[in-house]
Amino acid sequence: MLSRKRQEPTSRHADTSLIAQGTIIRGDVRFTGTLHLDGRIEGTVLGEGSNAVFTLSEQGQVQGEVRVPHAMINGQVNGDIYASERLELAAQARVIGDVRYNSLEMAAGAQVNGRMAHQGEDHVQRELPAPEVRSEPATV
């Protein structure tokens, strides 16, 4: 008889948080793992860690910024979206704000009312150098 090592059940949804339809959160939300929103967030949505995934259902709404590595949007966002890795805009997605992404998939019917800009991995926000300060010799 073959001996099988019993594996512990591993759920892909073990690190998933759900905000149900009818729930309104006023304030910023920070999360790791996956956040699935069917309700409404009035504040910034911030995914921490390179594997953080934000999913917004058709019923879901965000009134504020979304800053995550991975986002799947199928509801309404009134604010800017910053997806450092991948952004998926499904057919019911409605975004009023600017969108920055590394990789983008946009379904027919998705709407963005704002600017869209690609930011690759080599994208570094550069600041202008500080102006040189010239010291004049003191006059007596």
Score class of each variant (00 low, 15 high):
3 S>N: 10
4 R>Y: 09
5 K>S: 11
5 K>E: 11
5 K>Y: 07
7 Q>I: 12
7 Q>G: 08
8 E>Y: 02
9 P>D: 09
10 T>Q: 15
11 S>C: 03
12 R>N: 14
12 R>H: 11
13 H>R: 03
13 H>T: 03
14 A>I: 05
15 D>A: 15
15 D>H: 09
16 T>F: 01
17 S>R: 05
19 I>M: 04
19 I>S: 09
19 I>L: 15
20 A>D: 10
21 Q>M: 01
22 G>C: 06
23 T>Q: 13
24 I>F: 08
27 G>H: 07
29 V>M: 06
30 R>F: 13
32 T>P: 01
32 T>N: 01
32 T>K: 07
33 G>W: 01
34 T>R: 15
34 T>V: 05
34 T>A: 11
34 T>N: 04
34 T>F: 00
36 H>F: 02
36 H>W: 00
36 H>S: 14
37 L>D: 03
38 D>L: 12
39 G>F: 03
40 R>A: 07
40 R>F: 02
41 I>T: 11
44 T>H: 15
44 T>A: 14
46 L>I: 15
46 L>N: 11
47 G>L: 07
49 G>R: 11
50 S>N: 09
52 A>K: 09
52 A>V: 13
54 F>Y: 05
55 T>D: 05
55 T>C: 09
55 T>V: 12
60 G>V: 07
61 Q>S: 14
61 Q>P: 00
62 V>Y: 06
63 Q>M: 03
65 E>F: 02
65 E>A: 14
66 V>M: 08
66 V>H: 08
66 V>F: 06
70 H>N: 15
72 M>S: 11
75 G>D: 08
76 Q>S: 12
76 Q>Y: 03
78 N>E: 14
78 N>F: 04
78 N>K: 14
79 G>H: 02
79 G>A: 03
80 D>L: 00
84 S>E: 07
85 E>W: 00
85 E>V: 04
85 E>L: 01
86 R>I: 02
86 R>Y: 08
89 L>D: 10
91 A>L: 01
91 A>H: 07
92 Q>P: 00
94 R>M: 13
94 R>F: 14
96 I>V: 13
97 G>M: 09
97 G>C: 10
97 G>H: 13
97 G>T: 12
99 V>S: 04
99 V>H: 09
99 V>D: 08
99 V>Y: 04
100 R>Y: 14
101 Y>D: 14
102 N>L: 07
103 S>W: 02
104 L>H: 06
104 L>K: 07
105 E>I: 08
107 A>P: 00
109 G>A: 05
110 A>Q: 09
110 A>E: 13
111 Q>R: 14
112 V>Y: 02
112 V>E: 01
114 G>C: 02
116 M>N: 00
117 A>K: 03
118 H>L: 11
118 H>T: 02
119 Q>Y: 01
120 G>V: 02
121 E>R: 14
122 D>F: 11
123 H>C: 05
125 Q>A: 12
125 Q>L: 08
126 R>G: 01
127 E>T: 10
127 E>D: 09
129 P>R: 05
129 P>F: 00
130 A>L: 15
132 E>F: 00
133 V>Y: 05
135 S>W: 10
136 E>H: 10
137 P>D: 13
138 A>I: 12
139 T>E: 12
140 V>W: 04
